[in-house]
């Protein structure tokens, strides 16, 4: 505890850096994955192609990806860009699959009703499909957020300061409190982002809130899916990392 108090300033600074570096891959991953997931969902041919590709990308261990990216992209070996790009790749890998699953979870009857009411396919996507796919998308995004925060710690090996610094530095100097603090704060930031996303989801998708959902059984389904989604991801793309 005394170590934490004595180093509070550094811990706060690293936490803020960690949070800042985590946000970009999460947001970028989400934005890139939506069209990708849509293409994967829409066409049978691209589905296999895209999902296999993102599956393979997700298979690559993080440290290896950090090292392989610079010669591929022409970036310096020890730079923030490599880690941010690598984490974005992982985020896209998780999110593209989630998006395809999410769009597949939309009831076709509702889509047909929307089409019958005169919605163009473009408008239907934004007004009907995307909101109804929201709960599954959110579940995927929460997985992305949590795993990004956790993976970012490995970046310290290739010279990107994050809470991972508390691990390596603490281990080298034999300060248990430093490593423990690093683990605890990393988990706290992950849980914080997870909570924020959950609240954001409840605010944006009021129909998923508990209590209201039971009124109409059809609409209640997406909220059940949120609970199940983590296990789903586990069957496909969860897992790599470290």
């Amino acid at each position: 505890m005394t170590w934490v108090l004595a180093n509070l300033e550094q811990i706060l600074e690293l936490s803020l850096t960690h949070l800042r570096l985590s946000l970009l891959p999460i947001v970028l991953g989400f934005v890139i994955a939506i069209p990708l997931g849509w293409v994967a969902h829409r066409y049978r041919l691209t589905r296999g192609l895209i999902l296999t590709l993102v599956g393979l990308l997700y298979t690559i261990p993080s440290l290896a990806l950090f090292v392989v990216l610079p010669p591929l992209l022409g970036t310096p070996f020890l730079s923030e860009a490599n880690v941010l790009i690598a984490l974005t790749i992982y985020a896209v890998a998780i999110m593209a699959r989630s998006t395809a699953d999410a769009l597949a979870s939309v009831d076709p009857d509702i889509q047909q009703a929307a089409t019958a009411m005169g919605y163009s396919s473009w408008r239907r996507f934004w007004v009907v499909d995307l909101p109804l796919a929201g709960p599954v998308l959110l579940a995927g995004l929460r997985v992305v957020a949590v795993s990004t925060v956790s993976l970012l710690t490995v970046g310290v090996i290739v010279g990107v300061d994050s809470l991972g610094y508390l691990f390596t530095n603490g281990y080298q100097r034999g300060i248990l409190a430093s490593v423990l603090t690093g683990v605890v704060v990393t988990v706290l930031i992950a849980l914080l982002l997870d909570r924020v996303l959950a609240l954001l989801g409840a605010w944006l998708m009021p129909w998923t809130r508990a209590g209201r959902a039971s009124r109409r059984s059809r609409v209640a389904q997406p909220s059940q899916l949120v609970d199940r989604a983590p296990a789903t991801v586990g069957t496909g793309v969860q897992g790599s990392g470290a």
């Binding site: 997985v143 949590v146 795993s147 925060v149 956790s150 993976l151 710690t153 490995v154 809470l163 991972g164 508390l166 691990f167 390596t168 603490g170 281990y171 248990l176 490593v179 423990l180 690093g182 683990v183 990393t186 988990v187 992950a190 849980l191 997870d194 969860q238 990392g241 470290a242």
Partner: peptide, 12 residues
């Protein structure tokens, strides 16, 4: 488990 940084756990 996803939230736990494996890198830190190893050291810890």
């Amino acid at each position: 488990a996803r939230a736990l940084p494996s890198f830190g756990l190893l050291f810890l």
